[in-house]
Amino acid sequence: MTNGDSGLKALHNPDIPVPEELQSTIAITSLDRIYNWCRARSMWPLLFGLACCAIEMIAAAASRYDISRFGMEVMRPSPRQADLMIVSGTVTKKMVVPIVRIYNQMAEPKYVLAMGACASGGGPFKEGYNVVSGIDKYIPVDVYVPGCPPTPQALIHGFLTLQKKIESQSLRTVPWYRSGESTAIPIPLLGPDIIDPRQAELIRRQAEQAAAQAAAAPSEA
């Protein structure tokens, strides 16, 4: 194992002492810890690139930065087998429809990493008419990695940040073991502009308001 903290030592519960000479073979730990330790070190990302950042993501997976050191090299083309969606690049209105669909198809527990300025908040193309200003407008994001594009090292730092988040979770509180079904995110529609079905009410109110204003305007004049 090359990653320093990923050895057995990371598992030790500091409250229960284990003799020094046994520390490399025995660890006394809690269920939460071992559960998270396993999950954090076998994150399988979705093989899914969007734009410029995807190239840096590929570079991070290549020999120089080699994310297989973190158990992440298994990029899965199928969302059913993936744990992590790396939104690597500009999200356009046309593309957000498949992205939400793919997100819904991923099995829990699932995580989303917004890579780069575009995926986080629209980036330099934010003002564009076909650009979604941040994927978090549609799906929840766990970690944001700023940069345009983030270097492979910055991306790996993002992975480590995500690992920390996973390690802070507890079996008792994670949503995917609660009873009841988890709800899917409604798929956006392509109309005259992108439509989030969750905003149907708001769109109606806006239309009514505009109509009322239009009706009021001539009487003022």
């Binding site: 986080s120 978090d136 994001v141 944001y144 700023p146 983030p150 910055a154 480590l160």
Partner: peptide, 11 residues
């Protein structure tokens, strides 16, 4: 470049 965060609205 190590700026990854959990929340963008505040950071």
């Amino acid at each position: 470049y190590e700026l990854a965060s959990y929340d963008r609205t505040t950071h």
